Simulated scan of single mutants.
Amino acid sequence: MISVDEAQARLLALASPLPPVERELMQAVRHYVHAPLMAMRTQPAADLSAMDGYAIAVQDFPGPWRVIGESAAGHPFAGDLQRGEAVRIFTGAYVPENADSVLIQENAVRDGDSLRTTVDRVPLPGANIRRLGADFRAGDVVLPKGTYLDAGAISVATMAGHGRLIVGGVPRIAIAATGDELVPAGSAAGPAQIPCSNSPMLQAMLDGLPCNVFDAGILRDDLTALETGLSALSKQVDIIVTTGGASVGDHDLVQSALLNIGAQMDFWKVAMRPGKPLMAGKVGNAVVLGLPGNPSSAFVTAFLFLLPLIRHMAGCTTPLPALFEAATATDLPAGGDRAEYLRATVEGGDITPFISQDSGLVSPLSQSNALIIRDVNSPATPIGAVVQYHRLF
């Protein structure tokens, strides 16, 4: 068996980031920026008012002032200020020349063109003004390479002057469940059968990532059928994901089928719980990732291996899940000879593992928002001690 860290590194080494593509702005959402994104404009492009009020010169404080005009967003005041003058101004509007502060309207009283203040404190130069270039300037890097294009990043790209973006490629992924005991979701299941939950679960996990996923259905525990199905998939996609059939039983035929169609397997069995029978390799140009069949095992290994692989191929520069820390709300026993990933809930500053970590149970998956990480041979950990975890959502 190899360690989780080694398995992750070897899996990512099996594939390179896909060639970049250019997309319209809204078609680039949930993709990764291919190269550092430079600002094409300065933001703000001029000094703008941050509040509704009056543009004044601090040296004229405490007034009174004569109001000589108005500046609104998109409709700037054309002139400049002379001593003792003010301009009515609105949020986002251009600050006139010679004005260096905005007196907010709550601190002002106006009678016709005459303006006075109701406060004694002298404003600082720049008060209530968004200075030119305060956000960024033309030529600045506004989004580093590999940035995930969520709503905030799209806002930055738009404000920086971009209408099209070059982003990482989109991996094509096939998900194939294996096992004679499986029936399609929604079908009646007999006592010796179970619904095929792994495929819908994995598709849900991949939602939000830049990938094209299709369900390759259920492949039966028949060597010829597996060879035929997997061979066909290897010519259509970048990643083949199988669930089940990766262990050592008489009916676990996935690895044999892959080897028979020319796959080069890189590793099989990882020192982790759940998920030990994980395997990975290549068949043709496709990376094949064999996940265990038990739902929690499939979930944990998909989180730790499949999601990073997709991010890597799609251009993310930090594809592995981030680490966080919290205080354990229960005693944790000493670890064994495999790393453990405990389904858990984080609330406040505490993290609580589920009592049962049976990899065949699905109920904890709907309630977990974290995985506690227990390294190989971890010492017993008392309540209140800090542990590391991955956030699931």
Rank of each mutant, 00 (worst) to 15 (best):
M201Y: 00
A286K: 04
P210L: 13
G284Q: 04
L202I: 15
S297K: 00
L278H: 02
G275Q: 12
S231Y: 08
F299T: 00
P277S: 10
L219I: 09
M201Q: 02
F214L: 03
T224W: 13
G293D: 00
S296D: 01
A298Q: 04
P295D: 08
G262D: 08
N285R: 05
K269E: 10
G208I: 09
M279W: 01
L202R: 11
I239M: 06
T242W: 08
S197D: 10
K282T: 10
D238Y: 08
F214E: 10
D250E: 10
L259C: 15
A246T: 12
L289H: 02
V241K: 04
S234Y: 06
G249K: 05
P277V: 05
V287D: 08
A280L: 04
L259Q: 10
M265G: 04
M272I: 11
L233I: 01
A204M: 13
N285L: 06
L291Q: 13
D222F: 11
I261C: 10
D221Y: 02
N212S: 11
L230N: 13
P195E: 14
L226F: 04
D238R: 10
L223I: 15
T301R: 00
T301E: 02
F214S: 12
A232E: 15
G281N: 12
A225D: 15
S256I: 05
I218A: 12
G290K: 02
N198R: 03
S256Q: 13
G208H: 12
V288E: 01
R273G: 04
L226K: 09
D250V: 05
V300K: 04
C196E: 15
S231K: 14
M201E: 04
V283F: 01
G249Q: 09
V288R: 03
V237E: 08
S234N: 09
P274I: 01
S231N: 15
K282L: 12
Q203M: 07
R220H: 04
I194D: 11
V213A: 04
G290I: 00
N294D: 12
N294V: 03
Q193F: 06
L253N: 04
D252Y: 07
A204R: 14
A263L: 01
A286P: 00
T242L: 08
G281E: 11
K235N: 12
D221P: 08
